[in-house]
Simulated scan of single mutants.
Amino acid sequence: MDVLTEALNSMRTQVPTSVRTEGRAPWGLRLPPAAGAGFHVVLRGTCWLVPMDDEVHQEPFVLGTGDVVFLRNGPGHALADHPSTPAHEERPDQFHPGGPIGTLTVGGDGPRTTLLCGNYHLDQGRPHPLIRQLPEIVHLSTGLGRHPELSAAVGLLAAELENPRIGSAGIVPALIESLLLYILRAWLESQPAATATGWAAALTDPAVAPALASLHEKPDAQWTVESLARSAGLSRAAFARRFTALVGEPPMAYLTRWRMTTAARLLRESEVPLTTVAARTGYGSEYAFAKAFKREYGQAPGGYRRQSRAA
Rank of each mutant, 00 (worst) to 15 (best):
M1N: 06
D2M: 04
V15F: 00
V19Y: 00
R20M: 04
G28T: 07
L31N: 04
L31R: 10
F39P: 01
F39Y: 14
F39W: 03
G45I: 04
C47A: 13
V50K: 06
V56T: 12
P60G: 08
F61Q: 05
V62G: 11
G64Y: 05
G64M: 04
T65S: 13
D81S: 15
H82R: 15
R91C: 10
R91M: 15
P92S: 14
F95H: 15
P97G: 11
P100M: 13
L116I: 08
H121P: 10
H121W: 11
I131M: 14
E136T: 11
V138C: 10
H139W: 11
P148I: 06
A153P: 01
L156M: 11
A158G: 06
A158S: 15
L161K: 02
N163Y: 05
A174H: 13
I176P: 07
L179W: 03
I183P: 03
L188A: 12
L188G: 09
S190W: 05
S190K: 07
Q191T: 11
A196K: 09
T197A: 14
G198W: 06
W199C: 02
A201M: 02
L203W: 05
A207T: 09
K218A: 14
D220L: 01
S227F: 00
S227M: 01
L228M: 04
S235P: 01
S235L: 01
A240M: 01
R241F: 00
R242K: 12
F243V: 08
L246Y: 06
G248C: 06
R259K: 14
R268A: 13
E269W: 07
T281R: 03
G282Q: 05
K291W: 05
E296D: 14
P301F: 08
Y304V: 07
R305E: 05
